[in-house]
C-alpha cells in the first residue's frame, strides 16, 4: 500500500486513511467480513451434509468408518500446530521481529504442506478402494447407493478445504518473504494479520470437518 503522496506522506499509510489505527481497524473488519462470507460458503455444504446425514444415518456411519481415524487425528494435530506457529508469527510482526516472523511462517508453510500430503495419501486410498463417486464407485455394506452421497460430500468438503489450504500456503509464502525483508512494522502489519486470520479460519473449518466426517459413531 504505497502512499500516493496526497495529504500526508506517512510510510505505510494509504492516502485515503487519516491514521494507522483507522487503517488497521478497516483491514481487520474487512478481513472478518470476508471470513463471514466464507463461513456461509462452507455453511451451504454443512447444510447439505446435515440433510443427507439425517436422511441416511446408517450409511453415513458405515461410510465414515472407512476413513482412517489415525490419519484424521494426525492431520488435526498438524493443522492446530500450524495455527500456533501462525499466531506466533503474527505476534512477531506485531512486535517488529520480522526475521522471527518469517521463520515461523516457513514452519507454518511446512506444516500446511504436511497436512496436504497426508490428505493426498487419504485421497489415494479412496481411489484405490473405489470410494470416489462416479462410474467406478463401489461400496460394500448396507444401502450402498447412498454411500456415494457421503463420499461426494467428503470430497467436496475436504476438497474445498484443501483448496483453501493451497491458497493459504501461497499467501503464507508471500508473507514470509515480505516479513523477512522487514515489510511489516508494528504500525502496519495488516496484511500479515489478515493472512493469519485466513489461516486460522481454514483451521476452524477443519475443526468441524474432523468430527463430522471421521468420528460418526465409532463405538
Amino acid at each position: 500500500m504505497a502512499s500516493e503522496g496526497h495529504g500526508h506522506d506517512l510510510p505505510g499509510l494509504a492516502h485515503h486513511f487519516d491514521s494507522y489505527a483507522q487503517q488497521r481497524d478497516s483491514a481487520t473488519l474487512g478481513m472478518w467480513t470476508f471470513l463471514v462470507t466464507e463461513i456461509l460458503f462452507f455453511g451451504g455444504l454443512f447444510a447439505a451434509y446435515g440433510v443427507y446425514r439425517s436422511l441416511y444415518p446408517e450409511v453415513f456411519r458405515a461410510s465414515s468408518h472407512t476413513l482412517s481415524i489415525q490419519l484424521g487425528t494426525f492431520n488435526t494435530v498438524v493443522l492446530i500446530a500450524s495455527s500456533l506457529t501462525m499466531a506466533l508469527a503474527v505476534r512477531g510482526g506485531q512486535t517488529g521481529k520480522g526475521k522471527l516472523a518469517a521463520a515461523l511462517l516457513v514452519l507454518t508453510l511446512i506444516l500446511g504442506s504436511v497436512f496436504l500430503v497426508v490428505k493426498g495419501f487419504e485421497y489415494h486410498e479412496k481411489f484405490v478402494e473405489h470410494h470416489v463417486p462416479g462410474a467406478s464407485f463401489h461400496f460394500e455394506g448396507p444401502d450402498a447407493p447412498h454411500a456415494q452421497l457421503f463420499f461426494s460430500l467428503y470430497f467436496l468438503m475436504t476438497g474445498l478445504h484443501a483448496l483453501h489450504m493451497i491458497i493459504g500456503i501461497v499467501l503464507v509464502g508471500y508473507v514470509a518473504i515480505r516479513a523477512a525483508s522487514g515489510a511489516y512494522t508494528p504500525e502496519n502489519y495488516n496484511f500479515l494479520e489478515g493472512t493469519g486470520l485466513y489461516w486460522h479460519f481454514v483451521d476452524l473449518i477443519w475443526i468441524f470437518l474432523f468430527p463430522l466426517l471421521y468420528l460418526i459413531g465409532r463405538h
Binding site: T37, I39, F41, Q148, S152
Partner: peptide, 29 residues
C-alpha cells in the same frame, strides 16, 4: 451474507453436472 450460499449452490450444480455425484439427483438419493 447471501451470496456465498448461492455460490456453493452453483458449485454443487456444476459438480453434479460434470461428476454426477448425486447431491441433487433423485436417482442417487
Amino acid at each position: 451474507l447471501g451470496t456465498p450460499v448461492i455460490a456453493i449452490a452453483i458449485l454443487l450444480v456444476a459438480a453434479e453436472r460434470t461428476l454426477h455425484i448425486g447431491i441433487f439427483d433423485p436417482k442417487l438419493g
